[in-house]
Design a binder for these strands. Structure first.
Lengths: 253, 253
DNA sequence: GTTGACAACTTGTCTATACAAGATGTATTA
DNA sequence: TAATACATCTTGTATAGACAAGTTGTCAAC
């Protein structure tokens, strides 16, 4: 009996509302709940999943936040058409995760892997002392064309060393799955700039064409800043899709 | 007694957790809860606001989503440094709201206001029939320099007419405050493109410089699509800041 | 026929309670 | 001294219940 309980816990692994959320999301993706129709009411879902209404509501508000549904008081939860924003660049997503979802023939070439100092001025980040880091520079090639240069600065205080084979694979899955770090949130800015000579050559750019630069700082769940990233995109290969809910700017006086 | 009750309701206007959320947000902004410190525990906040823990937790998760705080199980809620992402372009925010928060000398010139059909192909939007709309083209000038061209297509089925004086002011406050529409969510894509001759002239662009194009579709709370917007930005004046929480891509098999 | 009241649905807010699980200091024990 | 166990904080999950508020159809009254 105890063993059974343990196994049950293990197979669940997630909270009840997480399981429900994923189940509903999958049903939406697979057309069990088609676009434009209403989900079963919260009370019906309670019966379906044999749970309380607050638990159902937690699952639904996660789906709301992700743009799967829109709730209308007095009527129900309507399924939105998400076919057009499948590219979740808005969240924190690694290159490898992206090309898995996008079905592209992608390749990563590691250009550099060495100790360095974080160029904090680039990130508009004020720091009294130098921040030692592992510097990784990589070129992303999709369908034979160079598309992105990624420059990662991984803070040494948090992660001592990054093996070469990891750099050519996925940093994120190494951090999360192998080291067990919990990546939690990031800030990100997008600007358009003139490329350096090196960038121009690597990306095979015509003369005088600009590049899109995405700079981000990534934090762990305990608020430790552990990574600075600079991504140089070919402008003609760059696209950023977003789903946003309206939040009024509120003022006090 | 009845009058007093009414007044009380009116001054509240929002839900309890909304009021608490705003209060805590303001206290963070004004340094009552400084960056890097912990908020009072959820139970202490219950006493402070004389409410239940679930209500406090709703307020806190809103603050979590907006990047004000990070919660750590077993420890508490820590205040994040939000000084560097005050530019909430990620949400749906109008030009006027933006320049109010940013303290710039801004001006809007209405170039066109006429009936038109939505160029759905630009928005990658498939529609069997033409969508009649009011077309508004505006040039945004900040500190004497042309910065953005905004092209709005406002669907006639939802909003019959847009007065001229509204076009030169704020569309959003007209929709929300005057017409009482509830703007709920939007999709948005960012790309880099070559400008048309007209765009090049209006934005006073050097030869061969690209522009940043932000295209969005905006929906009401009842999921009605009511607005298509195309914003042409001078690349050197464009900056997009984002705060994102990590969401793992989960797969079923 | 039109209007209005009402019932029966929906989601939204709020409370009170319980236990699980992570963090941390303080004893007790080996 | 070092390790362990425990008490006591914290946040996380789940439940059951109550009432408010928006939506819609029905039925009665005019």
């Amino acid at each position: 009996m105890k063993a059974f309980y343990r196994k049950d816990v293990k197979s669940a692994l997630k909270s009840k509302y997480d399981v429900i959320q994923l189940d509903i999301a999958n049903k939406i993706i697979h057309g069990v709940y088609p676009t434009g129709t209403f989900l079963p009411s919260e009370n019906q879902l309670c019966d379906l999943y044999n749970t309380s209404r607050e638990t159902i509501r937690k699952a639904l508000s996660a789906l709301l936040e992700q743009g799967f549904i829109q709730k209308i008081q007095g009527k129900g939860s309507i399924v939105l058409d998400l076919s057009r924003f499948v590219f979740p660049v808005s969240g924190i997503t690694s290159f490898k995760e992206l090309n898995q979802t996008q079905n592209m023939r992608a390749e990563t070439r590691v250009l550099k892997l060495e100790d360095s100092i974080v160029p904090t001025q680039l990130f508009n980040f004020e720091s009294a002392t130098d921040i030692p880091a592992t510097f990784i520079e990589r070129l992303r090639v999709v369908n034979g064309e160079p598309v992105v240069i990624d420059r990662d600065y991984i803070v040494k205080d948090v992660i001592d060393e990054v093996p070469m084979n990891v750099a050519s694979d996925s940093l994120y899955s190494y951090f999360e799955d192998t080291l067990g770090l919990e990546i939690s949130y990031a800030t990100k800015t997008i600007t358009v700039e003139s490329p350096s000579h090196q960038e121009q050559q690597l990306l095979d750019l015509p003369f005088d064409k600009d590049v899109v630069v995405v700079r981000s700082e990534t934090y762990l769940a305990d608020t430790t800043l552990f990574q600075f990233t600079e991504s140089i995109h070919r402008a003609d290969k760059f696209s950023f899709a977003d789903f946003a809910r309206r939040k009024k700017i509120k003022k006090e006086h």
